[in-house]
Design a protein around this nucleic acid. Sequence first.
DNA 1: GGCAAAAGATGACATCTGTCAACTTTCAGA
DNA 2: TCTGAAAGTTGACAGATGTCATCTTTTGCC
Lengths: 244, 244
Amino acid sequence: MFKFGYIYIGFFSGMEEHRCENCIVRKFNALRAMSKEELKAVSDAKITKSLKKGDPLFEEGEKLNGVFCVRAGVSKLSKLSSNGKDQIVKLATKGEVIGQRSVVAEETSNLSAKAVSDMEVCFIPKEAIVSTLHKNPDFTFEVLRHMAHDLREADDVIVNMSQKTVKQRIAEALLYLKTNFGEDSEGFLALVLSREDIANVVGTATESCIRILSEFRSKGYIETSGKRMAITDERKLRDLAEGF
Amino acid sequence: MFKFGYIYIGFFSGMEEHRCENCIVRKFNALRAMSKEELKAVSDAKITKSLKKGDPLFEEGEKLNGVFCVRAGVSKLSKLSSNGKDQIVKLATKGEVIGQRSVVAEETSNLSAKAVSDMEVCFIPKEAIVSTLHKNPDFTFEVLRHMAHDLREADDVIVNMSQKTVKQRIAEALLYLKTNFGEDSEGFLALVLSREDIANVVGTATESCIRILSEFRSKGYIETSGKRMAITDERKLRDLAEGF
DNA sequence: GGCAAAAGATGACATCTGTCAACTTTCAGA
DNA sequence: TCTGAAAGTTGACAGATGTCATCTTTTGCC
């Protein structure tokens, strides 16, 4: 059904909107530093995919033959620890490119990626990326800048994980969800995560996560409706996260 | 005295060994991708510094005007958490370049750096680096590759921090010290860290760290002599770290 | 060699957090 | 609409960990 709609629109609009050059999300990532010709090559080689919530993009240890540019939806990047738990290392959203690290380092992926909401992604074969990396210093520098940013974020996560209590980390995670993914018209967090996913973001047991969220609810910091959650006292959560 | 020896040798040997081109540690980092001319510019601009154990290279929040290439010794890169504890994020040793991330991202440093042993470093003003980053894609790519590697390591640290117990992390830290810095002729770990530093690496309280090290000693996994430490049962430590 | 400061060590105790088990609610598919 | 599976919730409890206080050892320095 969707396939049909896709072809239909493409047919009558000349498919202009499916070319990277016209893609808005490109503005947010390193692809903006590509020349017209390079972008054309990427556009010709790319494959657009639709993913349903829960679908995997790739698994840990898999060899990636390219990168994924997120057009819509959110993906969780996680790593299995030796005790069998999944640690979510990053949530990637519109405009972010997934898999760059592995392609650049020519290693198998250290993470697995899975859709946490319905997604639309473009798969870009690595040849289109790697050749540009060796020829266009502006592009390479742009990728470098993004990776420098990711590395700083990773450093911050390390400090939070090792120095803050579970309660502080959960408070922080909720604020993160609000600032990065926003709220819907009713004030609920736009990105709905299961309690298990939240627990895996902050690195705790699902039960502990549930217990702390219940506490937050009883204290009036948040409200819930089904799996949807709304922040009702941002101030308090922020104080908590900072350790007051 | 050391200063004197330095000048003396330099004088009679034509100072060849103080030019980046002839520096061995360069082989281990991105500088190996520089052209002769670029390397010459770096060599002319660089400033060699000797640091005593405990001396700071730079502080968190400081604007870095260049990077530091480690010729000898070890530096700890740490970040102060909101609860007042220092979290060591990385130990940088011979051949590693410190401060790249901040220079690339044009941000103040997110970390502070301090010598944990006597060090010799070369300070390279950022101009010499940045201009090359924009002109030589091989160099940029090489920096990118190193940063991709750092990012993977950071991901691993995140998982370890959030999923392993303090005991597991300490066991892992000891093995890390052995594989990365080696042992002296008597079998003691070559890099001597205080209990507090070890605690800050694994993200725990100094007392907890001491307690666990005492336990390891009583169980025969390690031996100590003053602040020096030797691993006597690597197998057991490895099993412990992996969760058996 | 002696002394003060720093580092290391240990006990006591409260609290945080994970685990196991039971139960309820929600949700998607037949 | 029904129903089984998945998700969410809660209690009980043990073990891990942080904190505070005190004491000992080591180290650097005069």
